[in-house]
């Protein structure tokens, strides 16, 4: 069940990235896409009945910590990308006074 939910989130992200005209919404789509992947990685490592990977006495079944460690890095990269993309969108808005990609493309057609 949760696997299909993750696929759905992934698809929503792709749809947002491709179909939305607003630049900010595109970036939100990208973030949803990344969240889908993060969820997928967390889903890979975890099974029912397992606990957090903190090694204390009496704890046996832990989830696989590697995907979670990887995802930490991926989230950091996602933040960098989002920040950079937002900065670019800000500059685009200052230049073209609109956030719609179709209008920006129309305006810069003859450049």
């Amino acid at each position: 069940m949760s696997f299909y939910l993750i696929v759905a989130i992934f698809m929503v992200g792709i749809w947002g990235l491709i179909a939305k005209d607003n630049l900010i919404k595109k970036i939100i789509g990208l973030n949803i896409l990344n969240s889908g992947i993060v969820l997928f990685f967390v889903y890979i490592g975890s099974f029912q009945g397992t606990t957090a990977p903190i090694m204390e006495k009496g704890i046996k079944d832990v989830v696989d910590p590697i995907p979670q460690a990887l995802m930490l890095t991926a989230i950091v990269i996602g933040i960098c990308l989002t920040a950079l993309a937002l900065a670019l969108v800000l500059k685009l808005y200052q230049k073209y006074k609109t956030l719609s990609i179709s209008q920006i493309e129309k305006m810069s057609k003859d450049e």
């Binding site: 230049k95 810069s108 450049e111």
Partner: peptide
């Protein structure tokens, strides 16, 4: 930071992030 350069960079960013 010309309009074209930023647009090129933004297109590149979205495609390559996908």
């Amino acid at each position: 930071q010309t309009g074209r350069a930023i647009r090129a960079s933004f297109d590149y960013l979205l495609l390559s992030s996908l």
